[in-house]
Design a protein around this nucleic acid. Structure first.
Lengths: 182, 182
DNA sequence: CTACGATACGGAGACCGTCTCCGTTTAGCA
DNA sequence: TGCTAAACGGAGACGGTCTCCGTATCGTAG
């Protein structure tokens, strides 16, 4: 990549991260281009679809995901509480931007999603937590890790769309946790 | 209302029902106007916001909701199965159109939503089912009816966005049911 | 150091959906 | 039949997405 192209690429990602945080996932891309000091053409050449831009932004996010799952696994305490802590981390991780829970949760089942690779980091983090509980024998039979992602993703989605705070989300997560544990 | 106005109103609602079913909630309103043989001005005078049109469409829907809750309450069988049957009805009712689950579930917590009154029919139907189970003493303590709506609405939302079929939704509903029952 | 070709830029503008304004038409009453 | 309030509808402003293509720049080969 040419040096000027790299500069613009980096600058667009940086600005986009900021704008998406301010305005959510459907912020105007032309506005991002303008703020980054490039023409719309440049933005669309680097990122043909909105989601390609999202994908680039998420580079730093994957680190947070693995850190969060390790933190959850390191917890020394009751299984239910471990699970709930992980769920809260999970919700927080996918709720960083408005519209995030819906975008990410629906990408889980879409093999052609441009952010698929990033989401797989999340699902495999979730797998690690669930498998650990399964080995401890505290899970009900037939619990599938992708089902867990859907359940928690669903809660995060309604919380995002209804502007619920963590206190309102917690009891919902508890219901799911109780439904999963023996 | 003048006779011609009434004619146009009815025709728009009829066409909108059809178009929303075909294309989902974000179909073009101008297209609906065109198909209904009226100008966009006419459509927007009758229905200033997209949701006002939704509200009109839902008139027949409220009947289905109450019928569904009565059907669920009439079920003679295990509590868990009763709850699951209601959940499946609930999901079906809010998933009639693409984007429906998200729209309806987020309207539950938004006092200014134009479709609020219609959604209240749904929440009170849900209340009846949950209260019946509470009287039977099979619910865990602290279960709140609006939480139930959010949980099931969340599942319906991810199912809608991920194109899941009833067979994939059922186990998710089971987890929630098990988390709610003693 | 220069010249050249490949690469990248960026803005004009096409396209589409939303929504409004206002001149024109029409219903329905007296 | 004539009048007026009510309703109509389409032109067009606006904002967002995305493309095309003439122009500018990079980086290298000579």
């Amino acid at each position: 990549m040419r040096a000027d192209a790299q500069r613009n690429y980096d600058r667009i990602v940086e600005v986009a991260r900021e704008v998406f945080r301010e305005q959510g996932y459907d912020a105007s891309l032309d506005e991002i281009a303008k703020r980054a000091g490039v023409g719309p053409g440049t933005l669309y050449r680097h990122f043909p679809k909105r989601e390609n831009l999202l994908d680039a932004i998420m580079q730093s996010w994957v680190d947070r995901v693995t850190a969060a799952s390790e933190k959850a696994l390191a917890y020394e305490g009751a299984d239910r509480e471990l699970l709930l802590r992980w769920f809260e981390e999970y919700v927080a991780l996918i709720s960083l931007h408005k519209g995030g829970p819906a975008k990410i949760t629906s990408a889980l089942g879409d093999p052609s999603s441009p952010i698929l690779t990033k989401c797989q980091v999340l699902t495999s983090a979730n797998d690690r937590v669930i498998e650990r509980l399964r080995e401890d024998g505290v899970l009900r039979d037939g619990v599938d890790t992708v089902q867990v992602c859907r359940l928690v993703g669903g809660i995060a989605t309604v919380a995002d769309q209804g502007d619920l705070d963590a206190a309102a989300v917690r009891p919902l997560l508890e219901v799911v946790a109780d439904g999963l544990l023996r």
